Amino acid sequence: MKLIIAYIQPHRLENVKKCLAEQDVAKMSVTNSLGCGAQAGYHESYRGVQFDVNLLKKVRIEIAVNDEFVKKTIDAIIKGAKTGNIGDGKIFIINLEECIRIRTGETGNDAIG
């Protein structure tokens, strides 16, 4: 079991969801986040005051999958999020020690579904 965490551009979310659905991956958590990577932000002026904006809007997607779904989940995220420009995002893959479905008490691969 793996936990896949992806940070993507907000305007690519619908496309990523579509690509994931094509691979039968429908269970996910999505949150808005702020972050800074290679983009390093931008410089802005508001009412004559200069300031740097280095925390940019991103979307964080978390998906717990069984091992046989890892590659196709990653491929779907890349397909949906990639524009070829700096700031497309990052994907992190973490070993998932245990998963428990609260409603039924199922554990492990059965709990992920």
Rank of each mutant, 00 (worst) to 15 (best):
M1F: 05
L3H: 02
L3Q: 07
I4C: 06
I5G: 00
A6S: 13
A6E: 08
I8R: 10
I8K: 09
Q9S: 06
P10G: 01
P10T: 02
H11W: 11
H11R: 15
R12I: 01
L13Q: 11
E14L: 08
E14D: 15
E14A: 11
C19E: 15
C19A: 15
L20A: 07
L20H: 04
A21P: 03
E22L: 12
E22P: 01
Q23H: 02
D24Q: 11
V25H: 07
V25G: 03
V25E: 07
V25L: 06
K27G: 11
S29H: 12
V30S: 10
V30I: 15
V30G: 08
N32I: 06
N32F: 03
L34W: 11
L34C: 02
G37E: 05
A38W: 06
A38L: 14
Q39P: 00
G41Q: 08
G41R: 08
G41D: 04
Y42G: 00
H43F: 10
E44C: 11
E44H: 13
E44M: 11
S45H: 14
R47Q: 13
R47G: 00
R47T: 02
R47W: 02
G48Y: 14
F51W: 11
F51L: 14
F51A: 07
F51T: 10
V53P: 03
V53L: 08
V53T: 10
N54Y: 11
N54R: 14
L55R: 10
L56Y: 09
L56S: 07
L56A: 09
K58E: 13
V59D: 01
R60G: 03
E62W: 04
I63D: 03
I63M: 04
I63E: 01
I63V: 10
A64I: 10
N66S: 05
D67Q: 09
F69T: 04
F69K: 15
V70N: 01
K71C: 00
K72D: 01
K72H: 02
T73G: 05
T73V: 07
I74V: 13
D75C: 10
A76V: 06
G80L: 05
A81Y: 02
A81P: 01
K82M: 13
T83N: 08
T83W: 12
G84K: 09
N85M: 12
N85Q: 15
I86L: 08
D88T: 09
K90M: 00
I91N: 05
I91W: 09
F92V: 04
F92D: 04
I93G: 03
I93L: 12
I94A: 09
I94V: 14
I94C: 12
N95I: 05
N95R: 07
N95E: 14
N95C: 04
L96S: 06
L96R: 07
E97P: 00
E97F: 00
E98R: 12
E98D: 15
C99Q: 09
C99N: 10
I100V: 14
I100P: 01
R101N: 03
I102A: 08
T104E: 05
T104A: 05
G105R: 13
G105E: 10
E106T: 00
E106K: 03
T107I: 12
T107K: 14
T107L: 06
G108C: 11
G108K: 12
G108I: 13
N109L: 10
D110L: 15
D110C: 05
D110Q: 14
D110N: 14
A111H: 08
A111G: 05
